[in-house]
Computed example of a mutant assay.
Amino acid sequence: MRNFTVRIFLILLISVVFTSCFEIIEEVTLHENGSGKILLTFNASQSKSKLASVMLLDSVQGYKVPSKAAITEEVTYLVKELKKANGISNVTYTVDYDSYIITLGCNFKQVDNINSFSQSLWDKQRMKGTFKSYDFNLASKLFKRHFAYAPKLKKDFNTLKSADKAVFNNATYTVIYRFDTEVSTYSNQQAKLSKSKKAMMMRLPITHIINGESSIENTIQLTK
């Protein structure tokens, strides 16, 4: 589930340990020339009342509760880094503490711009490994969403207390893709194709991704 929001995702996971329902949405719009835009949304609006109460505390169940200032600082950091990245433009973000919805988005000249930015963040976190989320072959019109399942994710998840695991029971990860041309084939059968055949959506329980039961990986062939 690595993506270009490594830092914000880590701090948000700490936040949602104290709530019961949240959603992460990944939206990618890809144009015929390989450019496009991406928008990531963290939505905990269904638990906003509980979150508002928790944010007033210093810690809960041994976890330090991040302040609004700390969360805003992380978002600001990502925005600053995005604006300096090659091939990235029109960086936008919102931080809504009334509904507990955070968004971060940008335009890209090619999907490799997103991969390069993700890798740089990953390296700054001193994490090992090569990062690559997307591929798009302009000639063949083949779009790929990569996802490599790490068994360690399940192992780490299983070390959590039962109450902490329960937080993820209703959590979902949604991916939405939009294209200029129609989709002819796709590999992940959990995805749903729109009537126009130019958009696709997949909503998965986060626990299924953690346990390796489902994957967001997909190979999508667009019409030439």
Rank of each mutant, 00 (worst) to 15 (best):
S184R: 12
S118F: 07
N218M: 07
A191V: 05
I216E: 11
A166M: 08
L57C: 02
S35Y: 14
S194P: 07
V75T: 02
A139W: 10
T72C: 14
T172R: 13
F147N: 10
S194Q: 02
D164L: 02
M55N: 11
Y177A: 03
I209Y: 06
I88F: 13
T29I: 13
V28T: 06
N3I: 08
Q189C: 06
K64G: 05
S196D: 07
N211L: 04
V65G: 02
K197W: 03
Y186T: 09
R178M: 09
S47A: 15
R2S: 13
Y173I: 15
I101A: 02
E217M: 10
S47N: 12
T92Q: 15
M1A: 15
E182I: 02
K124L: 08
P205N: 03
S120R: 10
E27G: 14
Y63P: 06
I14K: 04
A150K: 06
L39M: 13
N86G: 13
Q119G: 12
T174M: 07
I176R: 05
S49D: 10
F147P: 00
F22D: 15
S187P: 00
L78Y: 00
K144N: 09
R2C: 13
N170K: 10
T207H: 07
A44D: 15
V75C: 09
K68T: 00
E182D: 12
H31R: 14
N90M: 04
S20G: 15
S20P: 12
T174E: 05
Q190E: 11
V16S: 15
L40V: 01
M127A: 10
Y149V: 01
S67E: 04
K197A: 07
S214M: 11
V65Q: 00
S140Y: 00
N169I: 11
N107A: 01
V91C: 11
D156L: 06
F131T: 14
A70Q: 11
F42M: 01
N218P: 03
L57V: 04
I210T: 03
A171D: 14
L57E: 03
Y77T: 11
Y63I: 01
E217Y: 03
S15A: 14
F168W: 08
S133R: 09
F157V: 02
K154F: 08
F179I: 02
I102F: 03
N113E: 08
K161L: 04
K161Y: 02
E182A: 12
A69P: 04
L51Q: 03
K128A: 13
N170E: 14
Q61M: 11
D123F: 01
V60H: 06
L12S: 08
H31M: 09
K224T: 00
Y173F: 15
I216L: 12
S184K: 05
N170Q: 11
K144W: 00
A166N: 02
R126S: 15
E73R: 10
N169F: 14
E32M: 14
L142K: 04
C106D: 05
T76G: 06
K64N: 09
I216V: 10
K132I: 08
E217C: 07
S215V: 04
N158G: 06
M1G: 13
K155I: 08
V79G: 13
Q61N: 10
A150R: 07
A163G: 09
P66E: 03
T174L: 06
K154P: 01
K192C: 05
H146S: 02
V111M: 04
T130D: 12
L82N: 08
